[in-house]
Nucleic acid binder design. Sequence first.
DNA 1: ATTAGGG
DNA 2: CCCTAAT
Length: 537
Amino acid sequence: MEVESLLIDDRCGMHIDAEPGQTVGCISNEGSSSWMAQLESLEGLSQPKSKKVDPDKLNGRLEEPVPSLAPSLRESNLNQSGSVGELLAGGSPLSVTTKPDFSILKGEICLDNLSIKELHETFKATFGRETTVKDKQWLKRRISIGLTNSCAVSTNFIIKDNKFAKKGNEEGCNGMYGSFAKDPSIVNQKGLPTCLVGQLDYHEVVPERRLENHNIDDYSGSDDHKNEQRAAKRVRKPTKRYIEEFSEVESKESSGRLLNLAKNSGHGLMSPKSHVRLVRNVSSGGRTVVTRLDSLGGSGIQVPCVSRVRRSRPRKNFMALLKFNPSGMGMAATLVKKALDDHSFPPDDGNEDRVLKASSTPEHVHHLFVGMPEKGKQFSVMSAVGLGNNMEMKMNSSGDSDDNVVTVPTSKGGVRRKHHRAWTLSEVMKLVEGVSRYGAGRWSEIKRLVFASYSYRTSVDLKDKWRNLLKASFTQTPPDTGMNSRKNTGAMPIPTPILLKVRELAEMQAQAPPNLSSTKVAGSTRKIVHEKQTGFL
DNA sequence: ATTAGGG
DNA sequence: CCCTAAT
């Protein structure tokens, strides 16, 4: 934390002196030339009098620093590993995969003043990938770290006692790297400056690491973790609830990406872009687990991304079986149940926020047979591959309480169930209309005829909603029951006219409850009901 | 499979 | 919304 704030401060302070439009902080790791260019430009930058450096000049001066820097490196045995010398001298392996567009990062780098959107842009410029995180603190921190690790630890900074400090202007590269060499605490076994090591890890310029699927987002890596811990406090493992929640949100925003991932990973053809943006973890089993960078606690950690699918109730008989042998099944039963919950695909649910479902398609699904000694039977359940990987986490992480009821905090204080779908006004109106047409109670009818397209509304839902509407209509319409407007529920208050209509229907149907006898005898229930109601409409 | 009602 | 009993 110290380091971070220090960095930000420095950056801000430093930037005040800098001319706008000037790249600050040696941002680019695009290639050797730019790297050196940045060093050079920074030299100028640190001097208040320096004016905007025009690109041409920069290029013209490119040659100069290289020779001067290289010798100094040799002297400080930094090039023992070879790669470092290469890295700094040219042909840098840096950013082989990642090609951030640092051009965006001109001028304003004082992260504190940036809006979320700007931070996003900066983030993209820094890491070459998008982010959906809206946490300003996190963004700033991440960008800060990114820039630092990138190569910002340039001529303007030296590292001393694990802390960054601004360096005098004309010290030159010698001084900088000299200090590295002199301070053993910041030089690792290979003699690499720790900041550079971090840089390597961070941008996975080392081929082997890339093969291990470490990438920008992967902070679970041990090495990265060490670096990370220095800047951010530890955070607890994400809970199941958190994971699910975030996954759902994310799935809406990046479902395309995820789909892309699923598709590409199967063919082993990841587009460069998606490679940068997505986090793919291929476990030893060869299973693909989608993970994502998370902002939990402000430090990036990798969190399994559970594909959200609208759950449907397990088959009744299945539940019955579970009940028959709740203890015998033990863990297995629970696991199976969870599998059902998370990976059963309803036949309908045609629209909205279900896109993700495609990413956990049957190919990733296999049948799991669970023996039932008592019954001498077997039954199969759907279980997604990869579930096993998450299973332990899913089970354990929910150690705190967890009654299997996933709730989500609302904008206000309260919490609400996970799979809640707020009733829209149009839905309510349709409901009312349906009731008026077919009568309250005929919910399967209404569902079929009016809510055919709303797959997520079951007849029971309609019924429940109607019940609520009734309550509301009799409650609220009179000059605001007792106190005015109950705490403004946050949910849309349902227009009074509709409520009135509801009450009308209710009162009317209370008087003339659908007498099955007559309707059945008459054989034209609908007509009767309809006629009665139209009179009031 | 539907409904009604309680939770 | 979920769950269950009663149809």
